[in-house]
Computed example of a mutant assay.
Amino acid sequence: MTSRSFLTTIVMSIAIASAVSACGRKGDPELPPASVTTMPGEPKTVKPPVEDKRFILDPLI
Score class of each variant (00 low, 15 high):
Met1Phe: 14
Met1Pro: 13
Ser3Leu: 13
Ser3His: 09
Arg4Asn: 13
Arg4His: 11
Arg4Lys: 14
Phe6Arg: 15
Phe6His: 12
Phe6Val: 10
Thr9Val: 08
Ile10Pro: 00
Ile10Trp: 07
Val11Trp: 05
Val11Asn: 03
Met12Cys: 15
Met12His: 07
Met12Ala: 15
Met12Pro: 00
Met12Asp: 09
Ser13Glu: 02
Ser13Ala: 15
Ile14Tyr: 03
Ile14Asn: 01
Ile14Asp: 01
Ile14Ala: 13
Ile14Phe: 08
Ile16Val: 15
Ile16Ala: 11
Ala17Lys: 02
Ala17Glu: 01
Ala17Ile: 05
Ser18Ile: 07
Val20Arg: 04
Cys23Met: 12
Cys23Val: 14
Cys23Phe: 07
Gly24Ile: 01
Gly24Asn: 03
Gly24Arg: 02
Arg25Tyr: 13
Arg25Lys: 11
Lys26Ser: 03
Lys26Gly: 01
Gly27Pro: 05
Gly27Glu: 07
Gly27His: 05
Asp28Gly: 05
Pro29Ser: 04
Pro29Ala: 03
Pro29Ile: 01
Leu31Tyr: 08
Leu31Ala: 14
Pro32Tyr: 08
Pro32Ser: 13
Ala34His: 08
Thr37Val: 15
Thr37Glu: 10
Thr37Lys: 14
Thr37Gly: 03
Thr38His: 08
Met39Gly: 02
Met39Cys: 06
Pro40Asn: 07
Gly41Trp: 01
Gly41Ile: 00
Pro43Asn: 04
Pro43Phe: 03
Thr45Met: 05
Val46Pro: 00
Lys47Ala: 13
Lys47Pro: 02
Pro48Trp: 00
Pro48Asn: 03
Pro49Ser: 12
Pro49Gln: 05
Glu51Asp: 12
Glu51Tyr: 04
Glu51Lys: 15
Asp52Ser: 11
Lys53Ala: 10
Lys53Gln: 06
Arg54Phe: 13
Phe55Asn: 12
Ile56Lys: 08
Leu57Lys: 04
Asp58Asn: 15
Pro59Cys: 08
Leu60Gly: 04
Leu60Thr: 10
Leu60Tyr: 09
